[in-house]
């Protein structure tokens, strides 16, 4: 399944570069000029991965965008792009849930490698989800069958107990006991 990627960067040259390289690699790409526009896109569509510059003009920087994205869907992976001088901020972003950071200038081989890892992880998660769903279906269908059997078995046990009682009643003749026991069986 093609992953959809949202790129947020205020540098038009970098934006175009990301768009082209990611599209060429087969990803579905949307670009945003800053955090505010990116947040707007998040309102309307779902993205598998967000690649965002840490420092952008306006109220929504990379960290804020990361938080907004994680609130929308914890499974959205966020890769932050950072200048070498601000590695500390990138580490802070990782602590807040970013899956990775890349230093500027972005090495695309490295980026594609990270995206492949994310795709693999997502496919494993999806696989586990599918298995759980399949298990849930099997389980709930088995549960209904077992419930029916359980109730039926309890009903039979009750009948057996009553028949046992009847057959032990010494006040009745053999014929009466058999007759009453048969009545219980045929109820």
């Amino acid at each position: 399944m093609t992953m959809s990627i949202l790129v947020a960067d205020d540098d038009p040259v970098i934006r175009r570069l990301f768009e082209k390289r990611l599209q060429d690699a087969g990803y579905t790409v949307k670009v945003a000029v800053d955090g505010i526009e990116a947040a707007g896109y998040l309102d309307r569509s779902h993205f598998d991965v967000i690649i965002t510059d840490l420092v952008m003009p306006g109220d929504i920087g990379g960290i804020e965008l990361l938080q907004i994205a994680k609130e929308r869907d914890v499974l959205t992976e966020v890769i932050v792009i950072t200048a070498h001088s601000s590695i500390d901020t990138a580490v802070a972003a990782m602590k807040k849930g970013a899956s990775d950071y890349l230093e500027k200038p972005v090495n695309f081989d490295e980026l594609f490698f990270r995206l492949d890892k994310i795709a693999q992880l997502r496919s494993l998660v999806r696989n586990a989800d599918d298995l759980r769903n399949a298990m849930d279906v099997t389980e709930s269908s088995a549960a209904q069958t077992i419930q029916d059997l359980e109730i039926a078995a309890a009903g039979f046990q009750l009948k057996l107990d009553r028949i046992d009682d009847i057959l032990r009643k010494s006040s009745l003749s053999d014929y009466e006991r058999i007759d009453k026991a048969l009545q219980v069986i045929n109820e």
Partner: peptide, 17 residues
């Protein structure tokens, strides 16, 4: 558990639906 049963395991319990 929803797929478990006590039939033949513990006659002290009765199932109720």
């Amino acid at each position: 558990g929803s797929t478990e049963s006590l039939t033949g395991i513990c006659p002290r319990f009765v199932p109720k639906r």
